[in-house]
């Protein structure tokens, strides 16, 4: 006859062993992130940077247009009466609102992709499983003094639960994510193309042309101001005003480059999403990695432009 305490001890180990084996099996089946989830997370991070810089582009155009209005007002003060109705942002409020909403929508998509693809759900699960294990330890101490569970055993059980949960989550992801990427690709391509065209170049209708000419107006207004007031300026004042001209020319070049890089980044964002969708069932995806490298490089380049512009303000 086996003593009762001994039988209980044996049963405890059998059950915990089963839980742990399940967990280890689950872990071996792949509770780590799948290649698609890893790529979706990488896409999300890079997309966030590109979206933020596009927002900066709209602010840059409106700010430069406002600066040009002020410069022209000063230059033409003696000849043109002030008209308050002409002081307005270049991008009308309703159009800016739509762009802001679309960019927020893209950002929400990138964030959701990261949330469902990343490690956070598994980390949350581990936290919850740990809390559950702690509850159990507390419960035994209070009510089941005869049934001791060591911390090591508790940790193993918690790891097993987290591993099983990880597999279940990955199963859900693998089932739903490819279809979602397929569904989202067409609107993402369309939106990125429209945003890219919206920015355009100084040689096409759009924001880049408006920004380039806003600088042209500032440069012309500055030249006009110097010409009209040179006679009444001291040498030092004249030097200061003249020094503004090359700064404006440099600012125009940088702004042109910033918008060109932003448009390029939007094209890269579309390509990266297309590659993410096209390689959804692939274990290794060199084409996606290439697109991502391009997207990250563009985003970094634009960030440099906007930082340099903002520090000059």
């Amino acid at each position: 006859m086996i003593p009762k305490a001994c039988r209980r001890h044996k049963a405890r180990f059998c059950l915990f062993g089963a839980v742990i084996l399940c967990g280890l099996g689950a872990a071996l089946c792949g509770c780590t992130l799948s290649p698609l989830a890893t790529r979706a997370t990488a896409f999300s991070t890079a997309a966030t940077a590109a979206i933020a810089q596009t927002t900066n582009a709209y602010q840059l155009v409106n700010q430069s247009y406002a600066d040009a209005q002020v410069a022209m007002l000063v230059a033409n003060w003696d000849t043109t009466p002030f008209d308050a109705s002409k002081i307005k942002p270049f991008i009308p409020a309703k159009d800016l609102e739509v762009r802001t909403q679309v960019l927020e929508g893209l950002q929400q998509y990138a964030t959701l992709l990261a949330e469902v693809s990343g490690k956070q759900p598994i980390s949350d699960l581990e936290t919850q499983a740990t809390a559950a294990g702690n509850s159990l330890v507390k419960l035994q101490q209070d009510d089941f003094k005869g049934f001791k569970i060591e911390d090591q055993e508790k940790n193993l059980a918690v790891s097993a639960i987290a591993a099983i949960g990880g597999v279940l989550m990955e199963h859900e992801r693998a089932r739903a994510l490819p279809g979602i990427l397929d569904k989202m690709d067409k609107p993402i391509q369309q939106i990125c193309k429209v945003l890219e065209d919206d920015i355009g170049t100084p040689d096409t209708p759009g924001l880049a042309d408006a920004l380039h000419r806003a600088y042209d107006r500032q440069i012309d207004a500055q030249k006009q101001f110097i010409k009209d007031h040179a006679a009444s300026m001291s040498a030092e004042e004249k030097r200061t005003e003249i020094e503004e001209l090359p700064k404006l020319v440099q600012g125009q070049r940088q702004a042109d480059q910033a918008l060109a890089a932003t448009a390029k980044s939007l094209a890269a964002l579309a390509s990266a999403h297309a590659a993410l969708t096209a390689t959804k069932s692939q274990k290794d995806a060199p084409a996606f990695k290439l697109e991502m490298t391009q997207l990250v490089q563009n985003a970094q380049a634009i960030n440099g432009f906007y930082l340099s512009l903002s520090t000059k303000k």
Partner: peptide
């Protein structure tokens, strides 16, 4: 152009 793009963006969204 901006107004046209606004309509296209709304459709995409």
């Amino acid at each position: 152009q901006i107004a046209d793009d606004t309509v296209a963006l709304q459709a995409g969204a």
